[in-house]
Design a protein around this nucleic acid. Structure first.
Lengths: 190, 190
DNA sequence: GATGGCGGGTGACCTAGATCACATTTGCCT
DNA sequence: AGGCAAATGTGATCTAGGTCACCCGCCATC
């Protein structure tokens, strides 16, 4: 499916926009391609865009002082990614986004999104809905972190994101689970 | 400050409603009081309301199979609390909310909030803004969980919520930090 | 066909924090 | 005041998972 129809269908599941309205919104997005490993958002730089994944896979991650990587999210098609803290607060990014595979995305600036939300009440509803889901998912993951050991979280991950598992190298899965790659390796070789 | 003006000021920081608009919105809220320890939302029951804290302190928490408690959030005045998963999906609650101290709150049903959001674009903006902040805070906490040890998270908590720290018993702080009360006790007696 | 980097496996050891057990303090209830 | 329950402190032990060190195999590039 092409980028335009993917986004259109994605929004249509949540709210209704007329074709003219959607076309206007869509005109604010830019189609962009990233190669495997290419940076999308870099910590330390200004970040003023968010990204809707059309194909491929992005990852959102943080690198600490010891150069250790923690992955907040894998973004598959129809998922959104950015450093939302930087976006909303208009500060420099503290987290990174890059592409795990070759990827095609639609980008929109924070200002353009805000303007669209002001102009189209239904779109504002859509973005509220989207963040709600992200919030709930994030709470759930936090709870799993506190409650479950690595083995459980690993199996949970497999069930929840089987497609991600097949695409992504295991050291990245470890970084998502917040565990060393050695421990993860030992898990599935019981 | 009374409940009405507290809510009014809280919303006014983010968006503009006329007095008439705000009065209409406010009419959908109910003023409720809870005693220390009283349940607000109970896991297993239907949950169709969310709560704006006027005074006192609520906590949002999960109890696992071993009766162990994990606290997702302390809600101080002007904070909101509920089981949002249950609210949005219209399912039974899986997490609990209760009052840590005697508390006064404003409650609104999910349906009423949705209706208000439809009727007042600015209010929809307000709730989008609110969830955005919650999402970012949740991501940040997740990151801190992966990245930092208990001692660091404890000190972070002290800085971030000094008022909560003075009100809340330490076993609840431990449940928030995802650590045993014994370990927490040892932390500040180095 | 060497070289080098990346992904992945595995052994040996170490440590943060859990768990259990019991003592002590605090504060509320009559 | 006296009594009981919740909140706290603390020692002894246990363990999940981290860290370090080294291994191999793959495949891209010169």
């Amino acid at each position: 499916m092409d980028a335009k129809n993917l986004l259109k269908g994605h929004i249509a599941k949540v709210t209704q926009l007329t074709d003219a309205e959607f076309d206007h919104c869509f005109a604010q997005f830019k189609l962009r391609q990233f190669q495997k490993g290419q940076a999308v958002v870099t910590a330390g730089d200004m970040a003023d865009e968010e990204y809707f994944v059309v194909s491929g896979c992005l990852k959102t991650f943080f690198i600490n002082e010891d150069m250790k990587m923690f992955i907040l999210q894998f973004a598959m098609p129809t998922w959104w990614a950015s450093d939302y803290h930087a976006l909303y607060e208009r500060t420099r990014a503290t987290i990174n986004v890059d592409s795990v595979t070759d990827a095609v995305v639609l980008s929109i600036t924070n200002d353009d999104r805000e303007k669209l939300c002001r102009d189209f009440h239904n779109l504002e509803y859509f973005f509220r809905w989207r963040t709600n889901r992200g919030y709930v998912a994030s709470q759930k993951r936090l709870l799993s972190f506190m409650n479950n050991n690595v083995k459980f979280r690993y199996e949970e991950f497999l069930k929840l994101y089987p497609d991600v598992y097949n695409i992504v190298p295991k050291n990245l899965i470890a970084a998502y689970l917040g565990v060393s790659r050695e421990t993860l390796s030992r898990l599935y070789n019981t």
